[in-house]
Nucleic acid binder design. Structure first.
Lengths: 213, 213
DNA sequence: TAGATTGTTAATCGATTAACAATC
DNA sequence: TAGATTGTTAATCGATTAACAATC
C-alpha cells in the first residue's frame, strides 16, 4: 500500500479508510436529517472515536472544514464519496451462488452505493440457468469468456475454500482488480490486485474468546 | 478489555485474538493432513505473518513449544481451542430471518465450531411459523419470554439498522453476553456484553478506495 | 473582538519485529 | 556435541491522542 494517493505521497492506512467509510454513512444520515453543519467533535461522538482522529483522517485528503465553524455536511459527504471512489459504478462478479452469495446479491445497500452484480457463477447444475433479478446464473466454465466480453472491477468469492484460489486466478486473467473474499483461505494475488477478506468464523471465535474470560 | 485472562493479567489485543482464530484453522488443516509437528516459521508462512508474531501471540498463554523442535500440531490446536473457548457449545439467537440471516443459520462451519442457533426471530408474518432445520421462526415479541426460558450466550443481529438498538436492549435483558452485529449502526451495550461488528459496506467501500488509486 | 473549531505538530501509546540467550 | 527453534527482551515502527497556533 505504498502507491500514490490522489496526488498525495502519504500512505493512507487501512484504519483510516475504514473510518472514512464510516464517516460517509454518518454524513449521509446527518444530511437526511437536514443537519447542514457538523464539527469534528460531533462526528467523533457519532463514530465512537476522538475528534483528533477525525481531523487527522480528513487532513490526509484536504482542508474540508472552516475554523470556528466545522464542516458543511453535504460538502464533506461529497468529498468523502470522491475519496472512496463511490462516485462511480462498480461492476461485480459473484462466484458461488450459495445462500451467502444469494444474500449478498440481493442486498440492496450495495446497489445504492454503486456496487452492481452483473455476473453470477456456480458449478451446481440445479442452479445454472436460474435468474437472479436480470442476471442468469452461469457455469463457472463460461466465466472467463463472459468476463472478457463484459469485464468487472470486483469479484466476490463465496465458493468453498477448496476452489477459492483457482477462481482468483481466473479473476486475475480477466482483469478483475479487487476481490472480496468470504472463503476462509489465504489467497495469493498478483501485486496489481486488492484483496479484502471477510471471515465470519474469526468474528465468532473472537467473541467466544472474550465470552470465556 | 482490561479484565484478567485465564489467570494472566496481561491485556490481550484483539489483533492477537483474531490471529489465534487463524492459527486454529491452520492447525486443524495441518492435523487433517497428518502433519504432527510445526515450527513458528511454518505457521507464520501459512498465516502470512512473521514467526516472531506467532511466538509472541502464543507466549501470552503459555509455553506450548519445544526449543529446537517446534510445536506438536494436535497439542497446540487443542490449546488454541481452549484459549478461544471453542471447547464448549455456544447457543445463539438469530434476529432477522432475511437472506443474510438465512445464510448464517445454514452455514455449516459454525456448527462444526460449536456455535448453534437455537432461536430465530423476525417480524414478518410470512416467515413466522416456518421451520429452519428444527428451529421455528417466531415473532420477536415472543423473544424475551422464550430466551428467558432457554437462554443463549450469543445474539446475531441481521435486522435493519432501525431496529438494531432495541433488539440489543432485549438481548441485554435476557442475559445475552455477546453480539455479532451485521446492521450498519453503532450500538450501545452494557459493560458486561461484548460486541463484534461486521460491516460489509465498509469492506466494499475500502476496496473501492484502493481501486480508485 | 471573543468564542469556537480546524489543521498540524509533537508526545504518547501500543503493536510488530529483530535479536539472542536458553535449551531441546 | 551441533543444529534448530523457542520464549522473551529490547528496538522499531506506526497509529492515536493531546495540545495549540491559526483563523473563521
Amino acid at each position: 500500500m505504498t502507491r500514490e494517493i490522489q496526488g498525495n505521497t502519504e500512505k493512507i492506512s487501512e484504519f483510516t479508510v475504514r473510518r472514512l467509510s464510516n464517516y460517509f454513512r454518518i454524513l449521509r444520515e446527518l444530511e437526511v436529517k437536514g443537519v447542514t453543519t457538523v464539527s469534528s467533535a460531533r462526528l467523533a461522538e457519532l463514530g465512537g472515536i476522538t475528534s483528533a482522529q477525525v481531523r487527522k483522517d480528513l487532513s490526509y485528503f484536504g482542508n474540508f472544514g472552516t475554523r470556528g465553524l466545522g464542516y458543511k455536511v453535504t460538502e464533506l459527504k461529497d468529498a468523502v464519496i470522491r475519496i472512496l471512489g463511490l462516485n462511480h459504478r462498480w461492476g461485480m462478479a459473484l462466484f458461488g451462488a450459495g445462500s451467502l452469495g444469494h444474500a449478498l446479491f440481493f442486498h440492496n445497500g450495495f446497489r445504492e452505493d454503486g456496487f452492481y452484480f452483473t455476473h453470477v457463477y456456480d458449478i451446481d447444475d440445479e442452479k445454472i440457468g436460474t435468474m437472479w433479478r436480470d442476471v442468469e446464473i452461469r457455469h463457472v466454465r463460461e466465466a472467463e469468456d463472459r468476463l472478457r466480453a463484459a469485464p468487472v472491477e470486483i469479484g466476490v468469492l463465496t465458493t468453498p475454500k477448496e476452489s477459492a484460489q483457482e477462481v482468483v486466478d481466473l479473476m486475475a486473467r480477466v482483469g478483475v482488480k479487487g476481490v472480496l473474499n468470504f472463503a476462509p483461505k489465504r489467497l495469493e494475488l498478483p501485486d496489481n490486485m486488492w484483496l479484502r477478506n471477510v471471515n465470519l468464523a474469526v468474528a465468532l471465535e473472537s467473541l467466544s474468546f472474550y465470552l470465556s474470560l
